[in-house]
Amino acid sequence: MCCSVGFARSLGLALLPLALCCILANLLLLFPMGETTYIQNNQLASYILYFGGLGGGGLLMLVPAVVFITLGKCNCCWNDSLMMCGSVLAAIIGLVGSGYCFLISGLALFQGPQCFNNRWSYPFEGQGGRYLLQPETWSQCLQPVHIIEWNVTLLCILLGSAVLEFIICLLQLGNGLINAVCRPCCYKQEYSLNA
């Protein structure tokens, strides 16, 4: 039996909270400990300003989420195979968005935060992320307070969300390709959802 439109809808519903989580995590990264002075003074890590969570894992991920959820609900002249091809394109957009979120979050994690210790700098840059395994070195960042814990927690949330989004979009890519190719020979009836 070929994969169903219901499966795509459930994947879309799973993408929504992940996208919102990425948006929230990225917004929190912009305001360490709820303070606005660091973004106003350009004292945030450079990769955070690339908006991997807000753009890639968040807003861009809303495109496949909405397409997957509304799949089959449109009473237009498109046939089922064409709708599944549209879901494949939306899944590719999701793969790009989640990949961007993962890449930017990983680079920000390896770079480490910009913090104050006699001057504003990146004290952990060039260490390849080794500082993550050495929490005793984190105290050299005096401002923002607890910036390493703040960044590590939120960037790990972004990384995890991006991986889940990537898997979900990959599943729908396979689902859409199989249905676009096999649907004409696999199904003789149309879908109907009854509440």
Score class of each variant (00 low, 15 high):
C2Y: 05
V5K: 05
R9G: 07
S10L: 15
S10A: 15
L11D: 08
G12A: 04
L15K: 00
L15G: 00
L15Q: 00
L16A: 10
P17F: 04
L18C: 12
L20V: 12
C21K: 07
C22I: 09
C22A: 13
N26G: 12
N26K: 06
L28V: 12
F31I: 11
M33G: 10
G34A: 11
T37W: 14
Y38G: 05
I39D: 04
N41Q: 15
N42T: 13
Q43C: 14
L44N: 06
Y47D: 06
I48M: 05
L49S: 05
Y50N: 05
Y50C: 04
F51G: 03
G52A: 03
G52Y: 00
G52L: 01
G55C: 13
G55V: 14
G57M: 01
G57W: 00
G57T: 00
L60E: 02
M61A: 11
V66C: 05
V67M: 10
V67N: 07
F68L: 09
T70D: 03
T70W: 02
L71A: 11
G72V: 06
G72M: 08
K73A: 15
C74I: 12
N75T: 09
C85S: 13
S87N: 08
A90C: 08
A90L: 06
A91V: 02
I92Q: 01
G94M: 02
G97S: 07
G97H: 01
C101G: 03
F102M: 08
L103T: 04
I104H: 00
S105R: 02
G106Q: 00
L107T: 07
A108Y: 00
Q111W: 09
P113I: 01
Q114Y: 04
N117F: 08
R119N: 13
R119K: 15
W120A: 09
Y122V: 07
P123E: 06
F124Y: 05
E125L: 14
Q127H: 08
Q127A: 13
G129F: 01
Q134H: 13
Q140S: 12
L142I: 14
Q143I: 06
P144N: 03
H146A: 13
I148V: 14
E149N: 04
T153F: 12
C156Q: 12
C156I: 07
I157C: 06
L159C: 13
A162E: 03
E165S: 09
I168T: 05
C169D: 02
C169I: 03
L170T: 14
Q172W: 08
Q172M: 14
N175W: 02
N179Q: 14
V181T: 11
R183Y: 10
R183F: 10
R183S: 13
C185A: 15
Y187G: 15
Y187M: 15
Q189M: 15
E190S: 12
Y191I: 15
Y191Q: 15
S192N: 14
L193T: 10
